[in-house]
Amino acid sequence: MIDANKRNRSVLYAGLLAFALVGFLPYLWIIRTSLLTNIAAINPDLPILILPWKDYFTFSSYVDVWNSYNMLRYFGNSIFISISATIIALLISIPGAYAFARRDFPGRKVIFYTAVFTVMFPSIVLFIPVYELFYWLELVNTYFGLILGMGVFVMPLAIWLLQGFFRQGIPPNIEEAAKLDGLTDLTAFLRIVLPLSAPAVAVTALFSFLNAWNNFLWVYLLTSDAEKRTATVALYYLTAGDTLRQWNQIMAAVVMLVLPAVLFYGLVQGRVGEGMGAA
């Protein structure tokens, strides 16, 4: 029986390892290509290796793409817009989700399901009305318009995630006990409920940040000034030229684009596991 369990465990680990290798293979290929010279990257006769040969190994693609394409500006825009949109989404969705979970007011279910239903619409369906509205409000080609648009776009998902945690993850008697100790509704929420909901807030912040960071269509739609573009749109223009594409530089830009999202996940990953389990 013990040998059978060990054998089953070994088969399970082998399957997980194979699945992990298949999942990571595209990322390893991107990193490999970014470390090659461009001639080597497009050379079909070069042996397929995970690590490039020392004759073709170079970091120049990272330096070139950073210095030649104004990436500092684009990455700065991405960081500023993504963090600001995440903050706006959290500031509105946290009290909104708490109200949907704990308060009973006229039209509560209708408003909640209407907000959540908007998540089901493809983004492209909303482009024309959103662009017309933002143009009328003079928010096109502005940082505030990008931040507001991304924050509002991710808000229904944030409300849906948080209200489920408030409803199921925090018993109402905790707030009742806090009120018996003399706390008001607001202080009970700030001092008791909000600290307990930190894991769910971390998960919501992660989803909001990644949605804003990876967003291409909204930024492409609402900007025409190159100074307002984010790194995702800059990567599109990097690949849209008619000249010979520098694939090593393109892959270097992809690595740099993914790295901040990975770092942000690393900062909140301790809370993410708790939040996913609680939600």
Results as ranks from 00 to 15, higher is better:
residue 98 Y to P: 01
residue 84 S to E: 05
residue 71 M to V: 11
residue 84 S to H: 06
residue 71 M to C: 11
residue 96 G to K: 01
residue 96 G to E: 05
residue 104 D to C: 13
residue 89 A to S: 12
residue 100 F to K: 05
residue 68 S to N: 13
residue 95 P to L: 07
residue 91 L to R: 08
residue 92 I to D: 00
residue 92 I to F: 06
residue 70 N to T: 09
residue 97 A to K: 04
residue 75 F to W: 08
residue 76 G to H: 13
residue 74 Y to D: 08
residue 110 V to S: 05
residue 89 A to T: 10
residue 109 K to Q: 14
residue 105 F to A: 12
residue 105 F to C: 13
residue 100 F to Y: 14
residue 76 G to L: 14
residue 70 N to A: 14
residue 107 G to P: 02
residue 83 I to E: 03
residue 84 S to M: 05
residue 99 A to P: 00
residue 67 N to I: 11
residue 101 A to S: 14
residue 66 W to N: 01
residue 75 F to D: 06
residue 104 D to Y: 15
residue 72 L to Y: 09
residue 95 P to E: 05
residue 82 S to A: 10
residue 74 Y to S: 09
residue 73 R to N: 10
residue 105 F to M: 14
residue 107 G to R: 00
residue 104 D to N: 15
residue 84 S to F: 05
residue 106 P to W: 08
residue 90 L to R: 06
residue 78 S to Y: 01
residue 98 Y to E: 02
residue 102 R to W: 04
residue 69 Y to R: 15
residue 94 I to T: 09
residue 101 A to L: 04
residue 106 P to R: 04
residue 85 A to D: 05
residue 94 I to Y: 02
residue 105 F to T: 12
residue 73 R to A: 12
residue 83 I to Q: 02
residue 89 A to W: 01
residue 91 L to E: 14
residue 103 R to C: 14
residue 105 F to N: 11
residue 84 S to I: 00
residue 100 F to S: 06
residue 93 S to F: 06
residue 84 S to N: 02
residue 75 F to H: 07
residue 110 V to T: 10
residue 107 G to D: 00
residue 100 F to N: 08
residue 109 K to L: 13
residue 76 G to P: 11
residue 78 S to W: 03
residue 81 I to A: 03
residue 68 S to C: 11
residue 70 N to M: 11
residue 74 Y to W: 15
residue 75 F to Q: 04
residue 74 Y to G: 07
residue 87 I to Q: 05
residue 73 R to V: 12
residue 85 A to P: 00
residue 68 S to F: 08
residue 86 T to G: 08
residue 68 S to H: 10
residue 102 R to K: 02
residue 93 S to R: 04
residue 90 L to S: 10
residue 82 S to H: 04
residue 101 A to N: 06
residue 81 I to E: 04
residue 96 G to D: 03
residue 87 I to F: 12
residue 88 I to W: 01
residue 98 Y to S: 01
residue 105 F to S: 14
residue 106 P to T: 07
residue 73 R to W: 08
residue 88 I to D: 05
residue 97 A to W: 02
residue 91 L to I: 15
residue 77 N to C: 08
residue 79 I to D: 05
residue 67 N to W: 12
residue 68 S to Q: 12
residue 106 P to I: 07
residue 85 A to M: 00
residue 97 A to R: 01
residue 97 A to S: 10
residue 71 M to W: 12
residue 98 Y to C: 01
residue 85 A to E: 02
residue 72 L to K: 06
residue 81 I to K: 06
residue 94 I to Q: 00
residue 69 Y to I: 11
residue 102 R to A: 01
residue 69 Y to C: 10
residue 90 L to P: 08
residue 69 Y to M: 14
residue 91 L to Q: 12
residue 101 A to D: 07
residue 110 V to Y: 08
residue 94 I to C: 01
residue 103 R to N: 15
residue 81 I to M: 10
residue 108 R to I: 09
residue 104 D to W: 13
residue 67 N to R: 14
residue 73 R to Q: 11
residue 76 G to E: 14
residue 110 V to L: 12
residue 74 Y to N: 07
residue 106 P to H: 09
residue 92 I to Y: 03
residue 88 I to N: 00
residue 108 R to D: 11
residue 96 G to T: 14
residue 66 W to R: 04
residue 104 D to K: 15
residue 102 R to M: 02
